[in-house]
Design a protein around this nucleic acid. Structure first.
Lengths: 129, 129
DNA sequence: CTTGACCTTCCCGTCACTGGAAGCCCCATG
DNA sequence: CATGGGGCTTCCAGTGACGGGAAGGTCAAG
């Protein structure tokens, strides 16, 4: 299977697949013409990576998770710890964004949005004094 | 005022202040020894930028907002549009993160987190088949 | 034989900084 | 007057996770 087929099957851009090879997440074979040749095993790994990335795990987390996935003697506690740490990060980000959304929402509501210059948004950014 | 004082007063790292000069957000004077000399006006602009960045506006948004801030003939509608667009982005990000949090939360709850290898998190990442 | 779709590598750009090196400037102390 | 330490300068490189695009090799169809 060539990279285009793998891209179609996994939904990952070819660029991303090459990148994952660059950083040693996958090691596809090579044909005589230099083309990458992917086995089912590679496609499976890439699908795994796609799903892990979609859950927001960093590439380094993905690397670790993939290693655990392939380690029959893993402890699920190790996986759970990574996931929990990541969840904590996500929740922190959500909190940040919620705070921004609230502030911004109030300012937008207070702004007339017409052709006059008076603007509570700019007033707030300029200092609450 | 030197960059260190401005950093203390605005809370922005000196590196960031230099960067903002590099990209023409501010134009501090220079002393004979080459040191940047900041006026109150510069400090005020930097505080504005710090608050706008804290609300998650991109640098380019900040540039536009600063220009509007200094334009007495602005229309508040222009400001409001930028803010609303940004709010939309924030809400999209929050939705993404909430979805990640929910999925991840369920998986974490389902994972024993002990020394056995069975792990619903990895199982899910490996494909729901 | 040519066209056009794939594939390859390589390098630069993204965004908003951050770290660090090498070197100048200024003030206080011995 | 020398020295030491902190502050300032510029410049270069790295971050994360790719994406764009150039230059060129490969392959199957018409």
């Amino acid at each position: 299977m060539n990279i285009g087929d793998v891209s179609n099957r996994t939904g990952l851009p070819a660029k991303t697949i090459r990148y994952y090879e660059d950083i040693n997440l996958i090691k596809p074979m090579r044909d005589d013409n230099g083309y990458r040749r992917f086995r089912e095993q590679d496609v499976h790994k890439l699908s795994f990576l796609g799903r892990a990335r979609a859950l927001g795990f960093t590439i380094e987390d993905c690397r670790t998770l993939l290693a655990l996935y392939e380690d029959e003697t893993r402890a699920s506690a190790d996986v759970k710890r990574i996931a929990r740490d990541h969840l904590t990060q996500i929740e922190a980000k959500i909190a940040d964004l919620n705070s921004m959304r609230d502030t911004l929402g109030h300012l937008i509501d207070a702004c007339a949005g017409d052709d006059r210059p008076d603007c509570p948004i700019l007033h707030d950014l300029g200092g609450k004094s």
